[in-house]
Design a protein around this nucleic acid. Structure first.
Length: 556
RNA sequence: GGCCCGUUGGUCAAGAGGUUAAGACACGGCCCUUUCACGGCUGUAACAGCAGUUCGAAUCUGCUACGGGUCACCA
């Protein structure tokens, strides 16, 4: 068969050659060892939490080596595309600090290797499609519109489950071989009839033979050669992932392809395609999937519908960007936590990220661990940083609290300063959403008496203690002087000055100074638990404290 | 079912022939403490199984089991 003629018939409008492409997208001029990586999402309007893992690896590897990290939008499936999804993606990547050097931005493409949206690269794909036909490595398969509709209607997932594997494999093989047989006249007739074609690559592999390929995280893989004809172009002329991957990652000069391990089974196809196209194979890194536990206690891939699968949920739940990134790093590099302990104040960007420290196996998402990491992250922030974080969160998730915080920033920050900044800071918050319940009693509009006075105490004693407290309270007292007064009050109502004294001889006293503190705490905060009472009262101020205590006394 | 990947405490994991098999989270106990939140000390808990190589195996090899992924004109 005259493949050159076939190529011209199939792609009459393609005049450029692969050589032209090489000239248009030359090798990058980068220092030795610089890595070029990418993140290549589909614009579905949904960013998977698990997507943060390969994205983080790609970003770190590129920027740590003085290379390039770019964003490519893989919109080859128009059925799944969602309006505005590309903007959403750039926004959320920016939110999580994954800053790319090239790619699709709100102001158009940035970089010399574009377009960075696959639907705008159709001409480029067709250059190589034509070349493969000319080489006798690709062939057309014609379909009528009806047949296409049938294909589209197939529920592939449901079909796979009920398949008779042995017969199916045989039938597929026969169908494949049959598709490869056609004459030039048939092609001419189909084209004349206006039928559309999909372009297939003719596989030349022998599945009995294995090829060895090194994956940077999995190690040396032995995979069978590909013997399955791969769809290159769909009937609408748009490439499949496989074809676009080979061409784009070559022309954009990607050095490291970092993606989820669900791609591992199609690696033989990609290896074949790179060979057919005469491209050098990039280095591959297949990252294990993030798992969840199903109702039977088995690990399952964290899929779109699962709780916590949507990255944007974490912002809505009130996790800080730093906490999420920190957690991701602990899972990506096994020595990250150790490094963090030794370098508590450094940016995670200073961590020497290493491919060797990545795990080959998939891990279970652990929200307890995320919470712990998050508490540590927030405990190291200043009051101002916490204020900013919680305010930003409340802006969309709790407008009323947002207004409250904004009304008096200094007041809010003084509350958030309690127990912050020292060597052993408080760790009250895993989420921004935890802040409001923690500090709500400082605001009259949120204040409620949610806890009772300690059980078994005489109301008259409580009342007496509270009255004495109001009488003796002096805003100028330091913490020691303040607590001495509490001890005095304890003594006056027949309670022990020290908790230890009471524990030694409980029969001698009605209670101890801790009880007195509890009376005051409940009266002032409405709770049995609160941050340091001395600080709380100081921030609340004398008049409000007095008012709260008066309110309590009425209830006794 | 074929192919591929994986398997050290409940979870994340260190470990690369000789270790009392780290550490973190979670859980329990004790201490500190005016409550809470911290902090300190401490405890429970693991090499999937079976063969083989070796003086010696969590580490090497093979098989089995289990778990996961994938088998679209989706990505």
């Amino acid at each position: 068969m005259d493949y050159s003629k076939l190529a011209d018939m199939l792609f009459p409008d393609v005049s450029m050659t692969p050589e032209d492409m090489e000239k248009r997208y030359p090798e990058r001029n980068l220092p030795e060892g610089a890595k070029v990586t990418r993140i290549a999402p589909s614009p579905t309007g949904f960013f998977h939490f698990g997507g943060l893992f390969p994205a983080t690896v790609a970003e770190r590897l590129a920027h740590q080596s003085g290379g390039v990290f770019y964003l490519r939008i893989e919109d080859t499936d128009s059925k799944r595309e969602v309006e505005g999804a590309a903007e959403f993606i750039t926004k959320i990547l920016g939110y999580y600090g994954l800053n790319f050097d090239e790619g699709v931005t709100a102001d158009g493409d940035k970089g010399d290797y574009g377009p960075y949206t696959q639907s705008q690269r159709v001409d480029i794909y067709h250059v190589y499609a034509k070349q493969l036909v000319r080489d006798g490595r690709a062939y057309p398969v014609f379909s009528t519109d009806e047949e296409l509709d049938e294909l589209k209607a197939l529920d592939k997932k449901a079909e796979i489950k009920s398949v008779d594997w042995e017969n199916e494999a045989q039938a597929r093989r026969e169908a494949m071989l049959k598709r490869r047989e056609f004459t030039m006249e048939q092609v001419e007739a189909e084209l004349a009839a206006g039928h559309r074609f999909a372009l297939f690559a003719a596989a030349d592999g022998d599945p009995e033979k294995k090829i060895k390929i090194t994956d940077l995280v999995k190690g040396t893989l032995e995979i069978p050669e590909n013997d399955e004809d791969v769809v290159l172009l769909k009937s609408d002329g748009i490439p499949t992932y496989h074809f676009a991957h080979a061409i784009d990652d070559h022309l954009m000069r990607t050095t490291h392809v970092i993606r989820g391990e669900e791609w591992l089974p199609s690696l033989p196809k990609h290896v074949m395609l790179f060979r057919y196209l005469g491209f050098r194979l990039p280095k591959y890194m297949h990252i294990a999937q993030l798992m969840r536990l199903d109702e039977n206690g088995n690990k399952k891939k964290l899929s779109k519908r699962d709780m916590g699968a949507n990255l944007d949920d974490y912002r809505r739940m009130g996790y800080s960007v730093d906490a999420v990134n920190e957690y991701v790093m602990t899972l990506l590099n096994s020595n990250y936590e150790e490094w963090r302990m030794q370098n508590p104040d450094k940016s995670r960007l200073e961590f020497p990220f290493s491919i060797k420290k990545m795990s080959a196996s998939g891990c279970l998402f652990d929200i307890e661990k995320l919470n712990d990491v998050s508490k540590n992250v927030i405990s190291k922030m200043t009051a101002a940083q916490v204020y900013d974080g919680v305010t930003e969160f409340a802006k969309t998730e709790d407008p009323d609290f947002y207004e409250t915080l904004r009304a008096d920033r200094a007041y809010a920050e003084s509350i958030l300063s309690i127990g912050r900044g020292g060597a052993k800071p408080r760790k009250d918050f895993a989420l921004w959403a935890d802040v409001k319940p923690y500090m709500s009693f400082f605001y009259d509009k949120y204040f409620t008496r949610q806890d009772e006075m300690p059980a078994g105490k005489d109301a008259a004693d409580i009342k007496s203690a509270l009255e004495k407290f109001v009488e003796t309270y002096d805003e100028n007292d330091d913490q020691t002087a303040w607590f001495e007064k509490c001890k005095d009050i304890a003594e006056q109502i027949g309670y022990a000055r020290e908790t230890k004294l009471y524990k030694k001889e409980p029969e001698k006293y009605k209670g101890h100074v801790g009880d007195v503190a509890a009376f005051i705490r409940v009266a002032v905060t409405g709770r049995q638990n609160s941050p340091d009472l001395y600080e709380v009262i100081k921030i609340l101020g004398k008049s409000k404290t007095t008012e709260r205590i008066a309110g309590q006394i009425k209830l006794l």
